[in-house]
């Protein structure tokens, strides 16, 4: 139990996916303009992370390893993830339009989010079990959510600030991310 908790903390805080491992930078920079949007993005990502951690783990243990085709891992993973995400998107869109508006629109963006594929590959590299994979996915998702929501809060405030012109947009976001990473370094254990 404690081991799982530490795994969760490591994935979400001390080895934060975004700030420490540079996974999922594109949405982190792109979709962090407003807090509510960022939060939805975080939730959607967390959902996809947990499910795809589980699904890719299954694909790996049930199909790839028994057939001895681990070298097809990348292709298999990316296909599984993108189809799975697309499925979820279609499903949510039909079943609950409000939920789709809140979360679903982020799903396609997540497909090419390297945090998802990175997560699947990390799980495979570390050789986590089924439960561990799910917890690891959850931790990664929570970590992503924390980072993107904090960033969105700061960016909302910076909108009123007199940021120097060449720094406006991506540079200031990167610099803030750097300072966030700086502060997160302090949490290393």
């Amino acid at each position: 139990m404690q081991e799982l908790f530490l795994l969760f903390m490591a994935a979400s805080i001390t080895n934060n996916f975004v700030l420490m491992q540079f996974l999922g930078i594109c949405p982190f920079l792109g979709v962090s303009k407003e807090v509510p949007t960022a939060f939805s993005m975080g939730l959607a990502t967390t959902f996809v992370m947990v499910t795809s951690a589980v699904v890719t783990w299954l694909v790996e243990t049930v199909i790839l390893v028994p057939l001895g085709i681990e070298y097809l891992q990348y292709i298999a993973f990316i296909l599984v993830i993108s189809s799975f995400v697309q499925l979820t998107e279609l499903f949510v869109k039909k079943v609950s339009p409000p939920l789709y508006k809140a979360l679903g629109i982020f799903l396609p963006l997540i497909t090419t989010n390297c945090a998802i594929l990175g997560l699947a590959l990390l799980i495979s590299m570390e050789g986590y079990g089924f439960i561990q994979s799910a917890v690891f996915g959850l931790g990664a998702g929570v970590g992503f959510t924390i980072a993107i929501v904090l960033m969105a809060g700061i960016r909302e405030r910076l909108e009123f600030a007199d940021v120097p012109k060449p720094l406006k947009g991506a540079p200031i976001t990167l610099l803030v991310a750097g300072i966030m990473a700086l502060a997160f370094t302090g949490l290393a254990m």
């Binding site: 807090v35 904090l150 809060g153 966030m180 502060a183 997160f184 302090g186 949490l187 254990m189």
Partner: peptide, 29 residues
């Protein structure tokens, strides 16, 4: 306290204030 007791760094004041600075826009809202 977390950093002092569990963390790598002996002192947590510096990082804890920076980390909370980060949360201020959200807290305010």
């Amino acid at each position: 306290v977390i950093i002092r007791v569990f963390g790598n760094y002996p002192e947590g004041v510096l990082f804890s204030i920076l980390l909370m600075n980060m949360c201020v826009p959200l807290i305010d809202q």
